[in-house]
């Protein structure tokens, strides 16, 4: 089959980008989308042209590295699929396909289709952990966790940190990512001790990074390759409100300010 590709080309964050049109001729419907791009790149190299750079690593839908917007939809239109697992059989012969990077102020473009998602790391560093040193741990079964809670935490923890939620959101909001991370640890008894601190610090870092706000459109949930639920955002909103109020109460109890 043949495809016409409109691919984003951008030298670096400072220079402006534009679309280039390339033909992907005689590609097989059994190829994954990224394998098709590999082929296009190989042909570009053979012709002495610069290949396009794009991020990918595991190519089995779990590392969260790949990050392409295909015809306006991050990871393409297949439900619960990362772009590395999107196959060409879901495209029509002769179709024109637009390929762009994630677009958000908090994810500056590094080159072509690669963006810098370090903002996610900084959010995690603000509180996305349980403060337990190696060796501190009690016997694992000493703290029972109900199956429902463990399953719920796992649903949240399934997030692969790809950033498709930010890319698809009309506001470039990182709420689904942050909520998944907060909820994963806030649900579990192991993470309860620093629940309030965690949500406050992570939300504050999220705000500093310049992501937009949640307007509950549900686009993030629909595009998420791990189908993380919008409910976690509600959970985070709740936790944040509780943390704010509790923080104030504690302060007044201590009789101090700020």
């Amino acid at each position: 089959m043949n495809l016409t590709l409109k691919i984003w080309r951008q030298k670096n964050a400072a220079s402006p980008g534009c679309f280039e049109t390339h033909e992907a001729r005689d590609v097989s419907p059994d190829m994954s989308f990224l394998e098709m791009l590999d082929v296009v790149n190989e042909r570009l190299i053979a012709g002495g042209q610069e290949p396009f750079v794009f991020d990918s690593d595991c190519r089995e839908g779990i590392c969260g590295t790949c990050s392409l917007v295909i015809n306006g939809i991050p990871h393409g239109s297949r439900k619960g699929t990362t772009v590395c697992q999107l196959h060409l059989r879901y495209f029509k012969d002769g179709q024109t396909v637009t390929i762009e990077p994630w677009r958000a102020r908090a994810f500056p473009i590094v080159k072509d289709l690669i963006v810098d998602r370090a903002a996610f790391d900084r959010i995690m560093q603000a509180g996305g952990f349980v403060s337990v040193n190696t060796g501190n741990a009690p016997e694992a079964n000493a703290l029972p966790v109900s199956k429902e809670i463990a399953d719920l935490a796992m649903d949240a923890a399934a997030c692969i940190g790809c950033g498709a939620c930010v890319a698809v959101c009309k506001n470039a909001s990182a709420m689904l990512f942050v909520a998944a991370k907060v909820s994963h640890l806030n649900y579990l008894p192991q993470g309860k001790a620093e629940k309030d601190r965690r949500v406050k610090n992570m939300v504050s870092q999220m705000d500093k990074e310049g992501f937009g706000n949640c307007t509950v459109t549900g686009s993030c949930e629909a595009v998420c390759p791990k189908e993380i639920s919008l409910d976690f955002i509600a959970k985070m909103n709740r936790d944040y409100a509780v943390a704010l109020v509790k923080g104030e109460l504690k302060k007044s109890a201590a009789g101090g300010v700020g």
């Binding site: 952990f129 060796g135 009690p138 463990a150 994963h184 192991q190 993470g191």
Partner: peptide
């Protein structure tokens, strides 16, 4: 010890209804 450590870090291991691993 690895299992203890990871459970304490919040790794959501699969659990029985009784709450044990």
């Amino acid at each position: 010890s690895i299992i203890d450590q990871c459970a304490a870090q919040g790794v959501p291991f699969a659990r029985e209804y009784g709450g044990t691993l």
